[in-house]
Simulated scan of single mutants.
Amino acid sequence: MAASAGADENAPWLVAGLGNPGPEYAGNRHNVGFMVADLLAARLGGRFKRAARARAQVVEGRLGVPGVSSTRVVVAKPLSYMNLSGGPVTALRDFYKVPLERVVAVHDELDIDYGVLRLKLGGGDNGHNGLKSMTKAMGPAYHRVRFGIGRPPGRMQVADFVLKDFSSSERKELDYFVDRAADAVEALVTQGLERAQGSYNS
């Protein structure tokens, strides 16, 4: 069954890349959602602009094959800090009239090896503050594109690990993995969850 079953077929998808705003956070592991959102914006051929009624930046366009399977999409980056992501995403959902099952969070995931993707609908937040905020605001029944960053080495605290930049060895493959995550988002919104999982749940 396609992920959009039951949704208004004319409604857009809302893809929220999660991260922290500001140049000091730009290369952090916690900001991989922003990195994917930036690439999706480039694919849409647009530039982020400040949303009218939400603390977020947005780009609107269509993903997929024009005239065949293209889908209207709003790509967003909340301008709040990670633990307050729910407010801006909810405001955008309401403004664009997006059904909850067409909301997608793209985020880092500690319990998955680096670069591995997992797509799913609903579930817990697994301690992720961005998801915790979104779920508190909207409920859990939105899609997640989970980008593995692995666990911190040794005794490093989780908060320190996620707020550090990707290592030099990780950065060698980062562009490839971000590109693949953007592909996974595109497959999710144009083909549905099951087909996207079959292709990208590595």
Rank of each mutant, 00 (worst) to 15 (best):
M1R: 11
A7R: 05
N10T: 13
W13A: 01
G19V: 05
N20E: 09
G22D: 07
A26K: 07
N31Q: 02
M35E: 08
V36L: 09
V36H: 04
A37T: 00
A37G: 02
D38K: 02
D38P: 12
A41R: 02
G46W: 06
R47D: 13
R50K: 04
A51G: 04
R53V: 06
Q57S: 12
Q57L: 14
V65L: 15
P66F: 10
P66S: 04
P66V: 02
R72Q: 11
V75P: 06
S80A: 14
L84P: 05
T90W: 08
D94V: 13
Y96N: 03
R102G: 09
H107V: 15
L110K: 05
L110S: 07
D111L: 06
D113I: 00
G115M: 04
V116F: 04
L117C: 09
L119A: 04
D125R: 10
K132V: 07
K136S: 15
P140C: 02
A141G: 13
Y142I: 10
R146W: 02
I149T: 08
I149Q: 05
P153I: 09
G154C: 03
R155Q: 14
M156H: 09
S168N: 12
S169Y: 09
S169F: 11
E170R: 11
K172E: 15
R180T: 12
A182Q: 07
A184P: 11
A184C: 03
A187N: 03
R195I: 12
Q197I: 07
G198M: 12
N201Y: 04
